[in-house]
Nucleic acid binder design. Structure first.
Lengths: 156, 156
DNA sequence: GTGTCTGCAAAGTCTTTGCACCATA
DNA sequence: TATGGTGCAAAGACTTTGCAGACAC
């Protein structure tokens, strides 16, 4: 529903062109995959999906495109502790800001979107306070909870 | 000041022995370095420091020891986005729980310890809520703020 | 003495880079 | 047509593993 706008151009074309980047088939495929994904994909995950619909694509293009996207602020890059990075559209299908619950037993990751108003407000204030005290311009934050999911906590 | 207790044994000896691990010179050196460090050290940082006072030590020992320490919950392992892990004693010299402000311009990391009471309380409640809703046993959390430090924000 | 631990070297994994060719604008 | 972009192969960086000798207990 938010995939296109105006003359049928994907929403990100403007941002891309504005930065001097070209729109290529590979990049379209990658963004399409990210837009449809409901989880955090690794570079290889994306490569496999992309390769299915565009067999000529190489892993290199995946990494290079992800790098651009991250710099443009279109995607987030996460580290869940398993040695490979995961990527996620800043404004995903769900479109909502969220945090992660990571099971240290099985590496499962659960998205957590149930923010309470106070949480958002507190975060806003904290950022403001930190910005002032440390003269730091805060752009983003990362919150992750670690623990054991129901299956893994039973095992122990 | 909290380095020793009882009969002059470092505080962690008990925990180590209790888990069947042996106390070795290499491990003592590594823990000593971590205890004295006031920043997040990389494996190589630790290796260099350790090597200075115990030239026989190898990088392998550093990694293996850090792995044990992390599993024992004695250290935290962080990823600040520069491709190498950083380690920090759970209860450092400062002994305080803290979060990090990471400058995406120069990779500088600032410790942030000025918690406001509401923050701690809110976090506690959030954890409780998440634990209940997702049947997740939360053990730990990670909060990092990303942005530009004063030097880097001037540059742009 | 026995089961761990260790250093070294080699292997592994994810990611980045060099280069010649190709495609977008 | 002029820049950028791409795939491939190779290189790079950090971390892990195999193994024989050394050490803690």
């Amino acid at each position: 529903m938010r995939a296109k706008h105006g003359l049928g151009q994907p929403w990100w074309h403007g941002k891309f062109r504005g930065c001097g980047y070209r729109i290529t088939l590979g990049r379209e495929v990658i963004l399409d995959i990210l837009a449809k994904a409901d989880t955090h994909l690794s570079a290889e995950d994306i490569y496999i999906k992309a390769h299915a619909q565009y067999p000529n694509i190489g892993l290199t293009t995946i990494y290079r495109t992800l790098d651009i996207l991250a710099n443009l602020g279109l995607i987030y890059k996460f580290d869940f502790g398993d040695g490979r990075a995961r990527y996620e559209l800043t404004k995903g299908p769900k479109g909502t800001h969220h945090h992660h619950l990571i099971c240290t037993g099985c590496n499962r990751v659960i998205d957590y979107t149930d923010f309470i108003d106070e949480e958002v407000e507190l975060l806003r204030q904290t950022e403001k306070g930190l910005a002032k005290k440390y003269n730091f311009k805060i752009i983003n934050h990362l919150i992750q909870f670690y623990g054991l999911c129901n299956k893994c906590s039973v095992k122990r």
